[in-house]
């Protein structure tokens, strides 16, 4: 384990060093990511400014939800989502073999070398939106924060599973850079309260593709709202992870080294 942590830290240092070769661009990117991440909250504010609203949620509450969504995405991007780009580009080039000959798990080294420093902008944005909006509401108590942290861990688990699934598909679907768009479109449901969706759809995004675990349930916990729907989603999250790891293993075995 210590060895893996050391490898991860060295990879992290390398990623930072490589990114710092274009320092100006890095800082600009962080700021721009922060600005671009504000898009969904901005649109929500514009909707609420017309006097309209999402049923059962005031503006500050929706902002907390969208802030948590950004926070989860940012953390995932920083820590492990680089695996998708890593796999995508190396499989396309036919250089993924370089990961396979290293004396550590292929999955681990793909994650470790995919550290994305630019995501700091997203995390900052998420923290800012969540903190400012939560400040306008009744402060959460210790139990709410604990519940939030627990569910947030599941949120990262779901995003990790998505990342593994996406990178698994690019072994077969070589060079498909639009995989991100598929992911963004599916997870965009997670930016809004479950209450706006129809009953069937709520079941789909809670218990089949658990997108609602990314932000709706963590935000609900932080806001002291009902989270009873989260409990049945726990085994689904675990199954989703097992499925993604299984698919990864299967697709890795189909890697041909040929590029594309």
């Amino acid at each position: 384990m210590t060895r893996l942590i050391k490898i991860y830290l060295v990879s992290l240092k390398n990623s930072f060093a490589a990114r710092m070769a274009y320092r100006g661009d890095f800082f600009l990117c962080c700021v721009l990511i922060l600005v671009s991440e504000m898009l969904v909250p901005l649109l929500t504010m514009l909707i609420y400014s017309t006097g309209a609203s999402f049923p059962g949620w005031n503006l500050a509450e929706v902002m907390v939800l969208q802030g948590v969504f950004m926070l989860a995405r940012g953390t995932a991007n920083l820590l492990f989502f680089g695996i998708v780009y890593n796999t995508l580009s190396h499989v396309r080039e036919g250089t993924y073999d370089l990961f396979m000959i290293k004396p550590v798990s292929v999955l681990f080294i793909s994650i470790a070398s995919g550290f994305e420093p630019d995501s700091i902008g997203t995390i900052a944005g998420g923290l800012l939106v969540t903190a400012v909006s939560a400040g306008q509401l009744q402060p959460p108590d210790g139990a709410d924060i604990l519940r939030f942290l627990l569910i947030f861990a599941f949120s990262l688990l779901i995003l990790f599973s998505f990342a593994v699934l996406m990178s698994a598909t690019v072994f077969k679907w070589v060079g498909n850079s639009r995989i991100y768009e598929i992911f963004d479109s599916i997870t965009s449901f997670g930016n809004y309260p479950l209450t706006i969706f129809g009953r069937t759809f709520r079941i789909i995004i809670s218990y089949i593709i658990p997108v609602s675990v990314i932000a709706f349930y963590p935000a609900s916990a932080l806001l002291g709202k009902d989270i009873s729907g989260f409990v049945p989603a726990i085994p689904v999250c675990v199954l989703f992870l097992i499925l993604s790891l299984g698919v990864w293993k299967l697709m890795l075995s189909k890697y041909t080294s040929a590029g594309g």
Binding site: I47, A52, S53, F54, P55, S185, S188, F189, Y192, T195, I196, F197, G198, F201
Partner: peptide, 12 residues
């Protein structure tokens, strides 16, 4: 997604 958002918003 837009369909659900605007249906909810226009409900009132």
């Amino acid at each position: 997604v837009q369909y659900f958002i605007w249906n909810a918003v226009y409900a009132a």
